[in-house]
């Protein structure tokens, strides 16, 4: 469903040089699969997801969504895609219902279909309490639920989620994870990136571990365990990117990778 081949992105740096933010990443995600793209801050996860979504043009390589090239035919590729990030904003002066209607109409759904889809999503994501309030006044959890509903308006076969649970309370966190699992079970190809490795272990069927723009490991959990001779994802990651010693010195055993972002990435 999603093909990513030798995806590379170079950025100019302020010093006049260039930085290889993503360096030849290749992976595939099948329908019904939840793929976890894991790595510390600045590893290149977000840029990779943006290239797959057609928001950023790759320097070389390509991404195909349901067979459509993300750059050559952006609109057709995006039609297969639901995209959600922790930083995605909402229109402050519209209500969730109006916002959903806007995106539904833009996708090309007819009026009746838009109305039905909104009612289904409002019920499913338990949004009826705030569906008619302005988005500007919603809580973080309510905003994220609205955002999920927005990403699902067109019922796309592919979902890309960049840190979907960042900054959420326990309750909303649960709603989001349940929803990802349910969508995977409905046969969608899902790519998610996260800092929370425990979450990823529970949810994802396959993993891509990114470090400094390169894919240092890829496969199912047993495959990765076998390769790194470690049990936990965090240990596997540190082992594969050669940072194990450094972390052990710090006496770490941290649950997230974000604390290590300062170590040269």
């Amino acid at each position: 469903m999603v093909e990513v081949h030798a995806l590379t992105k170079l950025f100019p740096t302020t010093e006049g040089g260039e930085k290889r933010a993503v360096d030849g990443i290749t992976f595939h995600v099948k329908a019904g699969e939840i793929y976890g793209l894991l790595g510390p801050n600045g590893a290149g996860k977000t840029t990779t997801l943006r290239m797959i979504s057609g928001l950023v043009t790759p320097t070389s390589g390509y991404a195909r969504l349901a067979g459509v090239d993300a750059v050559a035919d952006r609109e057709a590729a995006k039609r297969n895609l639901g995209y959600l990030t922790a930083s995605t904003g909402l229109y402050q002066r519209l209500s969730p219902r109006e916002l959903l209607q806007y995106f539904g109409e833009l996708i090309g759904l007819d009026r009746a279909a838009v109305r039905k889809r909104i009612e289904d999503l409002v019920r499913w994501l338990d949004m009826s309490e705030f569906a008619n309030l302005r988005c500007g006044g919603l809580s973080t959890g309510q905003k994220q639920r609205t955002n999920i509903a927005r990403a699902l308006m067109g019922d796309p076969p592919i979902l890309i989620m960049d840190e979907p649970t960042l900054g959420l309370d326990v309750l909303t966190n649960r709603v989001v994870l349940d929803f990802i699992r349910a969508e995977g079970a409905r046969g969608k190809a899902i790519i998610m990136s996260t800092h929370y490795l425990d979450e990823a272990e529970l949810l994802c069927s396959r993993f891509g571990l990114i470090h400094e723009g390169r894919l240092v490991g890829e496969g199912t959990l047993p495959e990765l365990q076998e390769r790194a001779k470690k049990k936990r994802l965090s240990e596997i990651f540190l082992s594969l990117c050669g940072k194990e010693e450094h972390v052990l010195d710090l006496g770490a055993g941290l649950g997230t990778l974000s604390a290590h972002s300062a170590s040269g990435t």
Partner: peptide
């Protein structure tokens, strides 16, 4: 600035 441009940019509209 509000982060909605990214949302709009990812919708299938030229």
């Amino acid at each position: 600035e509000r982060g909605t441009l990214e949302t709009l940019a990812v919708s299938p509209v030229p």
